[in-house]
Design a protein around this nucleic acid. Structure first.
Lengths: 350, 350
DNA sequence: TTGTATGCGTTATCAG
DNA sequence: CTGATAACGCATACAA
């Protein structure tokens, strides 16, 4: 007789059955709201459940039903406020659907990605949400589970998975249009890392925005950072060293925008007086920073919620759940880009 | 013949057994590193595992072993950077111990706390970490699982659970000593909500700090907020309206400290010029804010890691795991409290 | 050292 | 409408 004998005290279905004077099968049905059970029987079962505080063992149920009612979220850095707000949206929507949320921090390490991703292969989780911009290696080979994965914010290279996010190029173009509309003609861009898929989208939008405004692109005005404050500082330092520096800068995220402002101050200048600055994301402290940051707001929480809902539909096997979901962004005008550049330069471009 | 027939393609132990030409029991033992298995047999099993990419089904294993290798973290707000950094520490330490991390957002709602907490009662998770300062209602009645719960940062009323945190009173006293050491004699305190256990600890430390510095306590200099920026603003507005306003303020968290600085600016003053400001927590943007915030740094990530490690020991049933863990804090001196108040007022208190 | 058999707690099939 | 019972995939006591 095998005897794990660990937590033997826990109430189980047979206890409820005994208490209610019915069989376990009936208890199971009563708890599952099956129509094939008398109101009176159900009442007896429910009384026993209340009395004991019983709750179904999810492991046993999961083993039997071949589902875990859990989803896994892979995130490069839980501590990053951008991601944590998305997590919040995911958790709430998942909970509403009866799913628990597992969170795996990957730190962009493929080995850790894989260690977490096996949970999808083993059935420990029913689905997965990717916030880290790529598929774990083991899921690149094994495509059987692609139907249970969705990405948020960053599209996955290859484009086989649905993405929940915003129109990044459109948002970047809107940021540039905002600056051009205030008279700026030398608008710089602090881009993200080349490997990041968002970098390309926002850079494309920056270029489109310049074109729309009738401005020529100057390669010297495009710098790359890595989404951190220090990288924004170096980018701005380089821009200020230019013979003909920009009067405005659009940064691919808020941290780098804050970095550019710090670099301005270090050089004895300030925003928006000497440079209009626009960020991206509207992180928590964007509105609190000095100066408050003009930025593109991403509906992070809603993105998370929509992703969880979409994943729920995919897990349930609903058809037509393969498409992307594009949510609206908003340009939040704050002081960092305030003021109009005057006098506007003459329209003689060349 | 019942046939769930959902994901029937998944490799299981019998497949490995067949492939390796052994029994499932042997496979199980080989995978569990049992000493009772030939090196050669083990090699055959491992080859089959590699070939198929097999991984043990955690639901089945959990049902059999009566453990889930999962822990649940209850947090009032995942989006709050303070908590998300603790989560990061928990996740990493838990993963190292072979535990996955479930995150439940409670929004301080007892009903949601309970919905998540049942996972402990049902065995869906092996343990629980509380970041929200109190026990879910269902666990207040049912004390059987207290051995599998630890708190982080905030102690739980009643003091029955081990807490991982810092010496909040000592840290508050250090903050006051820092200000007193710079010549300030009218030092205000913006406290947290009365219900929060940290509020009392930090308030007590504030008072102790005043006593140590030989300063009298002025009730008019103690205001309450709710840990948000706006509440810090109102608190400072009230302090500035005093006939004899303070020259320094110690806030119970960084958000409220930022709020006080905003209120100063709104009144045409600034920190540290007109008021020295000290916060608490050293949140991500404390060092980036204008002015950079003097604050108490809590080792958030390490607190999370220690909590996970402690919980792991408790789950494993190791003895002597009932005590609190107090980690060192650090007073981070930045510009918001820079400068010395001169001339110091005469020593004639009355 | 390895294989056989049983049970972990549920759900679903089938018979009543 | 209800009850007995066979899986779900794995780990262990016991036999070989």
């Amino acid at each position: 007789m095998p005897r794990p004998a660990k937590d033997r005290g826990r109430t189980k279905m047979v206890d409820i059955a005994r208490l209610a004077g019915v069989s376990v099968a009936t208890v199971s049905r009563a708890l599952a709201d099956s129509p094939r059970v008398t109101a009176e029987t159900r009442e007896r079962v429910e009384a026993a459940v209340r009395q004991t505080g019983y709750a179904v063992n999810p492991l046993a149920r999961g083993l039997r039903r071949q589902e875990a009612r859990q989803i896994l979220v892979l995130v490069p850095d839980i501590g990053n406020p951008f991601f944590s707000e998305v997590l919040l949206g995911i958790e709430e929507a998942a909970a509403a659907l009866g799913f628990s949320m597992l969170v795996g921090n990957t730190a962009k390490d493929p080995a850790r990605e894989d260690r977490h991703a096996v949970q999808l292969l083993t059935g420990a989780v029913d689905g997965m949400i990717l916030l880290n911009g790529r598929l774990p290696p083991c899921l690149q080979r094994d495509r059987r589970h692609h139907g249970r994965i969705v990405a948020v914010s960053e599209a996955i290279p290859g484009g086989v998975l649905p993405v929940v996010g915003i129109d990044n190029a459109g948002a970047a173009a809107a940021a540039v249009a905002h600056l051009a509309g205030r008279g700026h003609r030398r608008i710089a861009h602090v881009a993200g890392p080349a490997a990041n898929i968002l970098t390309g989208q926002r850079l494309a939008g920056y270029r489109a925005g310049l074109r729309t405004a009738g401005l020529a692109e100057d390669p010297a005005l495009i710098r790359s950072g890595d989404f951190t404050i220090p990288s924004g500082e170096s980018a701005m330092a380089a821009l200020l060293a230019l013979a003909d520096p920009p009067t405005a800068v659009f940064c691919s995220n808020d941290e780098m925008a804050i970095g550019t402002i710090r670099a301005l101050r270090a050089a004895g200048r300030d925003a928006p007086r000497d440079m209009a600055v626009v960020g991206f994301d509207d992180i928590q402290f964007a509105g609190t920073y000095e100066p408050p940051l003009t930025t593109i707001r991403q509906p992070r929480r809603r993105m998370g919620a929509e992703a969880a809902a979409l994943l729920g539909r995919r897990i349930a096997g609903e058809p037509g759940t393969g498409g992307d979901i594009t949510l609206p962004f908003a340009l939040i005008e704050r002081r960092s880009s305030a003021g109009v550049l005057a006098p506007p330069p003459p329209l003689l471009s060349y």
